[in-house]
Design a protein around this nucleic acid. Structure first.
Lengths: 348, 348
DNA sequence: GTGAAAGCGCTAACAC
DNA sequence: GTGTTAGCGCTTTCAC
């Protein structure tokens, strides 16, 4: 007998439904639902028989049906500008791990810059009836958050404050201040800064705040800020490597220390120095921000901003709101801490 | 008059439904549905009026309702072992960008190793009625793929072949072979290899294949493989830095070249050499695999494996299957290409 | 080209 | 503790 070949991607037979389980046990679908979701009283005998029957039949509840009926989807959106950059990937790891552990799904909205922002907000977030959303490093205006709230979607933010929602971030100005002060306290007076381009669009002023911290520390110490020593890179290793290499190439008027607004740039700076035959920290001290794992091999002194924990915390804030526990819409500053390694020392 | 404060996270008023749009236009819900989804004949006048009314009311279709009714969810799962490692984050970027661009959602299943594998497979993939799933660097056994197929979920894989599903990867053995041959052709005879630990669990033998490529090239050239020169790191910069530093520390019997199975390790090796006062490529040639952006500043010669494109391709394979276009369940080898920079040269 | 009506598979009142 | 009964908000035949 010839069995016709069915396309492999179509079900061979209808999967079992709630009512099949109910029939098998001889109870109503309501009871099965209660037994399986724990959403109501069921005798332990019945519960047990239902669970057995469900397993035997290989029953898997329909997500869409239960979402439609209950109004909850156990699906949480995570909106972020990049996934292929260390900070964002690490934050995402923290968020996704926490959500998965709590039985929630993470729906990824990778904007790749801000390309998809508009369509994500309208087409996706609302249409999909997410239970909640985490917004990373993106400014939403009050009308947008209001729109989400009135669609019943609680938010949590990372990187800057969001009207009406709890947010977490580190104090970037303070981090910049402390990093710079560390160099100043070591005795450096000629300090360069490697930052990013001015923030555009919906980004929070993370890089600017770190630069302002730098400037404030310098000014407070009565030190001069040489405009040629305010470098603009793009938060990449290679970008910083090139900028710093040109800066250090002229031996005449060199800084004795560099504060880079991110570890990837700081390590790029160290490589640039090394390739010019300069010793770190002998000829040049370098400090960064992040605690990026690459810093370890470079012996980079840095300010740990606990990226993964920030993600975890944001996820918790979401879960807490979903559990009905009210959360104050405050901006929470995540502590940073110094990680002194071998890239900083007093100037020679 | 005092308006009672409503909790901010609850809808202030019921959002508009399909039937509200229908009422406003004076047509049936069926017509509105056809007009908005394009799933049936509608006169262009009607369509226009429906679109206007929908916009005015701020109508957003319910995802769950339409999924339940249609059986399709426009949601695609992406299962991967890590998101905070370059290769995976980059692949994810490629996949998510392609899916978002096609109007699909990406549901992220970050296993963090393989912790969540079992629950992802049962609890999530099936329950959620995903339209499809991309599986990155994870071996599924035939009973698992069969289970997904019979639930109507087409698959695409990355990193190794999957029974019954189209997959893409690079030829890791060939990449190892070519990288090693590059060094051999330059005249190196004393070549070390930095790889990863033996694969465990559901991982494909990516690192082993690269090592086998190395061994095969060495053997074919009649060169000896010194077991002390087969280094095992963990695919991180710092890990490779340490291993290579100890290897090179003893000046007596040093290799003249190193092939590292990934760029992050290769750059760690370069830094180790530099910190020991060795010149690259003068005293040591180094080659990697990946085209990781960090390699640029190090002048690293590498084999580009086009991680993002692999992700894009896998996503296309999924979209193609969803469009009804049959796809052969073959394993597609993605081309790699050489990127010769300044870290390799003939031995002195 | 359009409407009526029957679901999609589950949950949640409400009775008993 | 359990069953009955309405929906949840769409899509999709099937008539017309």
């Amino acid at each position: 007998m010839v069995v016709p070949e069915l396309p492999a991607h179509r079900p061979l037979q209808a999967p079992p439904r709630l009512k099949d389980v109910a029939a098998k046990v001889g109870v109503s679908t309501a009871t099965v639902s209660r037994a399986l979701t724990g959403s109501g009283p069921v005798s332990s005998k019945t519960r047990q028989r239902v669970e057995e029957a469900a397993k035997e039949l290989g029953f898997v509840p329909s997500h869409h049906a239960s979402s439609l009926a209950s109004g909850r989807s156990r699906n949480i959106g995570v909106v972020l500008p990049y996934v292929d950059r260390w900070f964002f990937a690490t934050v995402l790891d923290g968020i996704a791990g926490t959500l998965t552990g709590a039985g929630y799904d993470a729906a990824l909205y990778n904007l790749q810059g801000e390309n998809f922002l508009e369509s994500v907000l309208t087409d996706f977030l609302l249409r999909r009836h997410l239970d909640a959303a985490a917004v990373v490093s993106l400014r939403l205006d009050p009308s947008e958050t209001e729109q989400l709230f009135s669609a019943g979607i609680p938010l949590a933010g990372i990187g800057g404050s969001l009207e009406g929602a709890p947010t977490v971030s580190v104090d970037d100005l303070d981090a910049g201040l402390r990093a710079t002060n560390h160099l100043i306290e070591l005795g450096h007076r000629r300090i360069a800064f490697v930052g990013g381009p001015p923030e555009a669009g919906r980004s929070f002023p993370m890089a600017s705040d770190r630069r302002r911290g730098f400037e404030r520390a310098m000014t407070a110490a009565g030190l001069e800020i040489d405009p040629r020593w305010l470098l603009v890179a793009d938060f990449t290793f290679s970008g910083a490597y090139q900028r710093v290499k040109s800066l250090l190439a002229a031996p005449a008027d060199r800084p004795t220390a560099i504060f880079a607004a991110a570890d990837e740039m700081a390590t790029g700076a160290i490589l640039a120095a090394a390739n010019l035959g300069l010793q770190v920290p002998g000829d040049l001290s370098v400090i960064g921000i992040d605690a990026h794992p690459i810093g370890e091999a470079f012996g980079l002194t840095t300010v740990n901003q606990h990226a993964r924990q920030q993600g975890t915390r944001a996820a918790q804030l979401l879960l807490q709101q979903l559990s009905g526990d009210p959360v104050t819409a405050s901006h929470e500053l995540h502590p940073t801490n110094f990680l002194v390694r071998s890239s900083t020392a007093p100037p020679v």
